[in-house]
Nucleic acid binder design. Sequence first.
DNA 1: AGCACGATTAACT
DNA 2: GTTAATCGTGCTC
Length: 218
Amino acid sequence: MLRLERPFFSRATLQVARELLGQRLVRLEAGRRLAGYIVETEAYVGEDDLGCHAKAGRTPRTLPMYGQPGLVYVYFTYGMHWMLNFVTERVDFPAAVLIRAIFPSEGIAAFARRRAPRPRSLWADGPAKICQALAIDGQMNKIDACDPQSLLFVEEGLKIPDSGVTIGPRVGLYSVPEPWKSIPWRFCVNNLPMVLRQQCTISAKPAPDGGDLSPSRS
DNA sequence: AGCACGATTAACT
DNA sequence: GTTAATCGTGCTC
C-alpha cells in the first residue's frame, strides 16, 4: 500500500505514463476503497503538443497542468464526460498523463452500482467510464494526489515488463495536425497477469464475463 | 454574443 | 461503421 509520491510524477511525462501501467488507482469514498490497476495511459506534453489542451496556453481550464506534479487534472468534455489526468514534470511546464483504462480490483460492489448491468469488462475500459465508476468529477480538479489526505491517489502495484506493453498513437485526436496526431504517446498493457484475474474473479459476486482486458480501441 | 469543436460513450443500422 | 447526446471552452466578430 505504498502511495506514489511527488518524485514519481516529477519526471518526463512519457516515462510517467509508461510507469503508471500496473499501478493501482485508488479512490476513497465514504470510507470505502475503490481501486483498479491502470492498464492504459496517454501522455500530453507542453504547449507545443497540439493534441494537448495546453496548446491554448495558460487558461482557467489548463491552469492545473501548470501546477506542481502530482496534481489531479479533471476536465469536462462532449457535454457529458469527465476525464482524469495526473500532472507531471514541473511547475510552469504544462503536461499530464490521461488515465484511459483500469482493471477493477477493489470495491467491486461500488463499481457494479454505477456500471452494471454492463459486462464487467466494460466497467472501466475508457477514460469517462473510469470517472463514472469512481465518482470523479470537476470537484476533484486540482486536488493533490500526493497529499496524504487526498481521496484520490495512486499506489505501487505491479511491474509490467516491456514485453507486456503496447505503444501506439493517442486516441480521438481527429482534427489535430501531424505529427501530434500519430505520435506514439499511448501506453497499453497487453494482458493482465493470471494472478490478477483470479483475484478479481474471486472477489466478484456475479459471474464475470471473464474477457481479457486489453483496451478496446486500437 | 455567437460559433465550432471536443483526450467519449452508447445505441443503432 | 454511423450517429446523437450535450455543454464548457477558447476563439472570432
